[in-house]
Amino acid sequence: STCFSTHHLQFAEDANHTLWTSSGGGGGVVGWLNTKMFDETGDEEKSQGWTALIVDHNGNGRRDEYTEANAPADPAKDRRVNAAFYGVAPSPSDGSVWGSVLGFPGSLVRLSPGANPPATALAEVYEVPWNNPRAAVQGFSPRGMDIDRNGVVWVSLASGHFASFDRRLCKGALNGPTATGQHCPEGWKLYPTPGPNFKGATEGANADAHYYNWVDQ
């Protein structure tokens, strides 16, 4: 058994055959299981770990003391994000782990485990563009997601779009106080899916409910 909730699961391509888990939208942490260690020792306690989602709010490039999500931000500290993964996908390109966060407008979160997680684990939050004048198309509410060999994340949106997010296209800071979630609209591409819209809707209201998607790597 684990000390954290699990829902969707996916293996990383690392030496430990790490199994990364989502919590299904609650719980507030991301967990993993070192399956190599578990197979060799049978010790489920030593083989598992978990981390809260901490963003590098002070922009110093490392995880250090942080404020809780419901406390005022401190420019000298990092900050916890009140979020949990629904979909989860380790990136084969750089070892990071991505997850989709339910809600409105919802987001994708990149978790970099670092050399010694959870002590070194840092997160980045990229919200779906919404009311963002820098975005060509607006969308909302991700659910299932997956990732390709280049590290591009693909996600289904309740707004009636199939979307991709490519972190390499971001032009500004990825961490620090200006990385507020809506800071990289240029990384997103939203593709309207075929099918009828709800009556009276002009955009972003496809009557189909897109649940999950997978990438054939």
Rank of each mutant, 00 (worst) to 15 (best):
L111A: 08
L108K: 01
A179F: 12
G160A: 10
V101W: 04
G59A: 00
L53A: 09
F165M: 05
A136P: 00
V101S: 06
P90C: 05
R167T: 08
M145I: 06
N150P: 00
S156T: 15
W130P: 00
A121H: 08
T178E: 14
E65G: 12
V55F: 03
D166H: 02
G61R: 10
A123N: 09
A83V: 13
V55C: 04
A136D: 14
R110P: 01
A119V: 11
V81L: 15
N131V: 02
N60R: 11
N132I: 02
N131W: 10
P113I: 10
P117C: 13
L108Y: 02
L122V: 14
S159M: 05
N131K: 13
L174S: 00
P72F: 12
M145N: 04
G114E: 07
R134L: 13
N132S: 10
D146H: 10
V128H: 03
S100K: 09
C170L: 08
L108F: 01
R62K: 15
A89E: 04
K77S: 08
E127P: 03
S100C: 05
D146V: 03
H57I: 03
D166F: 08
S159V: 09
A52T: 13
R143W: 14
A119G: 13
R149V: 14
P92D: 03
T67H: 06
V155L: 07
P133Y: 04
P105Q: 10
G87R: 06
K171A: 14
F140D: 07
E127N: 14
D78E: 11
W50C: 15
D94Y: 00
F104D: 05
S159Q: 09
G172H: 02
V97A: 05
A121W: 08
P75N: 01
S141H: 13
Y86R: 13
P72N: 04
R110A: 11
S164T: 15
T120A: 12
G176V: 10
G61F: 02
G103S: 02
D78A: 08
T178L: 10
Q138E: 13
G172C: 11
F165Y: 13
A89K: 03
G106Y: 00
S107T: 02
N131Y: 09
S93P: 00
A163Q: 12
E124L: 12
V81W: 09
